[in-house]
Design a protein around this nucleic acid. Structure first.
Lengths: 191, 191
DNA sequence: TAGATACATTTACATATGTTAATGTAACTA
DNA sequence: TAGTTACATTAACATATGTAAATGTATCTA
């Protein structure tokens, strides 16, 4: 539980009282490699704190084409955030790429506490703002940069990712095919 | 001021008291077509409520290439949100594409009120969450869809946009060149 | 060790998109 | 009205990326 406390406090500090109220709603959970934290099509109910492991969030369209939205590398929060917010079924699935250790909580229960704990509401705001900043960054990259530049940026952000996840997931994160990623890697090696 | 009140209440209702406190920080502002609400490179200080008019937010990279992140069609909020959050100079400029009527407020002053008014903090959370949802949607479109599909989606979302803004801004919103947009339009007309 | 499995790379060709420059078109202006 | 300005379209060619299939390369397993 200390890891969660430390992680949260870096985003927005909570009073001891608030954290105690929060604490009781979190339960331990373990995922084996390949397990889903959440499947596409269901309404998200849980938010998770990923203590260790790697999870990928991905979108699968009607043609069977996948887009890997994000890699979560613990410690961080996981969960189908947009589904939690909208109460609609999630279009984005989240799957463990390695064995994972988590703490999970029912999001509705957390939300209820917003009324009683102003500092928790602030945490909620800070988290939403943080997520917005991340999304905006990636949006700019996708709109403005070629895949090879996006690849370089990704390697700076997650230097180890290629040794953890298969190359076709990396390609899908970049919005390209494994073939094209192969070409880019080759090109960058030569340069 | 009523328009602002109505707009905000749809996102998250405020008490009369909170809204009164808020109200005093907003001042009227008019922008002529072509004016900048905020220039790239400066620290954003103001958040604006766009009563009427169209503003575009865009990113300009070192090569002089532009990416139009967003069209704001009033009534809605404008402002370099990421710069307001991070207190760093904005990389994203915002420019009036038509004459605009706004109410503007100093963001720091608003932020101060977060401490005193829980419902304002909630509004801040709801706005951040709303922005996140929009960004995530666009991210998926950019990662998964061809430009012609993105064009069709954009037309559904802003049916009038092409009659308001020049075509090269639309192209830049889609992450393509005017040339390519011209081809897509032609293709879609034939089909 | 031989085969199977899972993934990565390469090849050949097709399509989407970019670049540059020419041409078209409408609205404004002297 | 003729020229100018601002923008859109088109043309010709180059590059980035996709698709499908073959090949390469580890690692696992019987």
């Amino acid at each position: 539980m200390k890891e969660l406390f430390d992680y949260i406090n870096k985003i927005s500090p909570l009073s001891a009282e608030t954290f105690t109220a929060l604490q009781t709603t979190f339960q331990p959970l373990e995922l084996a490699k390949g397990d889903f934290f959440i499947q596409s099509g269901v309404c998200a109910q849980q938010i998770g704190f990923l203590k260790s492991g790697v999870v990928r969030a991905f979108f699968l369209n009607q043609d069977g084409k996948e887009y890997t939205k994000q890699f979560f590398v613990g410690p961080c929060l996981v969960g189908a955030y947009s589904s939690l917010l909208t109460k609609q079924p999630t279009k984005i699935a989240q799957q463990a790429l390695t064995d994972c250790v988590l703490l999970v909580a029912n999001y509705k229960q957390l939300e209820k506490n917003y009324d009683n704990y102003h500092d928790l509401e602030r945490l909620g705001r800070k988290i939403a703002e943080k997520y917005f900043l991340e999304k905006e960054q990636k949006e700019i990259e996708m709109g403005l940069l070629d895949a090879d530049k996006r690849y370089i940026i990704m390697k700076e952000k997650f230097p180890a990712i290629e040794s953890i996840v298969p190359q076709y997931y990396v390609a899908s994160y970049l919005g390209i095919t494994p073939t094209q990623l192969s070409r880019i890697r080759k090109k960058l090696k030569i340069i």
